[in-house]
């Protein structure tokens, strides 16, 4: 009986009682003066000025191929942290994350440099995501067209610091979406850009879902979650509060936030 189901229900991400703890340097409550810091070092060597933030507390779920999963919750509820842990970028304190292939976070912006031209950033971002030079050359034109950067003149050859924030965000999303991902995680990327670009982005996310497997989307915009996701995880204070079909969870969430 299990075998009948496995054909279309292959798990791609399994989180098992996952706990994530951040360690923050120099954020210890109390006096921040140099002498206070010195006396702390002298008194006890170990936890000098280190504060722990328990960001995710025992989250378990299983995601399947072909699903688009929305992550909702108020600010600081651990959504982005959870995504990073799934991507293997933050080590788990306790519990484990199992994944099929390499999940990627749509976070190419970190590799881009505002002093370089858009053109060079496309190449740099592509390489940073692990694409080969040939792949980038082949997809370069599609990336530029998708971003719409050149719609108003030849902006791609200008340094990225001259772009408006919307333009930069569009280019970032275009670069990141150019790669085929097994598991793709998107963190609030759709909030930026004009309406036309948002439509194109949602279209691309649906495409990625068809090609690849699982898409995770963090958003505070309930409408874009409704448009793209079929399942929603609701995180609150690092705990999984609800996990179910989009409508059910969003209804409860909207009740909770008083909308």
């Amino acid at each position: 009986m299990a075998e009948q189901n496995t054909g279309d229900r292959r798990p791609t991400v399994i989180a098992d009682e996952l706990h994530i703890v951040y360690r923050v340097n120099g954020a210890k409550t109390g006096k921040g003066s140099a002498t206070a810091a010195l006396s702390r070092i002298i008194k006890r060597g170990e936890p000098r000025g280190v504060r722990k933030v328990h960001a995710v507390r025992g989250v378990s779920f299983t995601a399947y191929r072909g699903e688009a999963i929305g992550l909702i919750g108020s600010n600081g509820s651990g959504k982005s942290t959870l995504l990073r842990a799934i991507a293997g970028l933050l080590p788990a304190e306790k519990g484990k994350v199992y994944t099929d292939g390499q999940p990627s976070l749509l976070g190419v912006n970190a590799a881009l440099m505002s002093d370089l031209t858009g053109e060079r950033n496309v190449i740099l971002g592509g390489l940073a995501m692990g694409m080969s030079r040939e792949q980038i050359k082949e997809r370069y034109q599609r990336i530029v067209d998708f971003s719409g950067i050149n719609d108003k003149g030849d902006f791609i050859t200008l340094p990225m610091r001259t772009y408006s924030s919307g333009m930069a965000a569009r280019l970032r999303f275009s670069i990141a979406a150019a790669k085929d991902h097994d598991v793709l995680m998107i963190d609030e990327a759709l909030a930026t850009g004009d309406r036309a670009f948002q439509k194109r982005s949602e279209e691309r996310i649906r495409e990625l879902r068809k090609e690849a497997g699982t898409v995770f989307l963090v958003s505070h915009n309930n409408k874009s979650i409704r448009d793209t996701c079929d399942r929603v995880l609701w995180l609150e204070r690092g705990e999984l509060r609800m996990d179910g079909p989009t409508e059910e969870v969003l209804k409860e969430y909207e009740k909770f936030t008083g909308k």
Partner: peptide
Amino acid sequence: PAADLAAKYGLAVSGA
């Protein structure tokens, strides 16, 4: 259990 499910479908621990 999660570990067995992961093994069944050949999933690997993320970030090892």
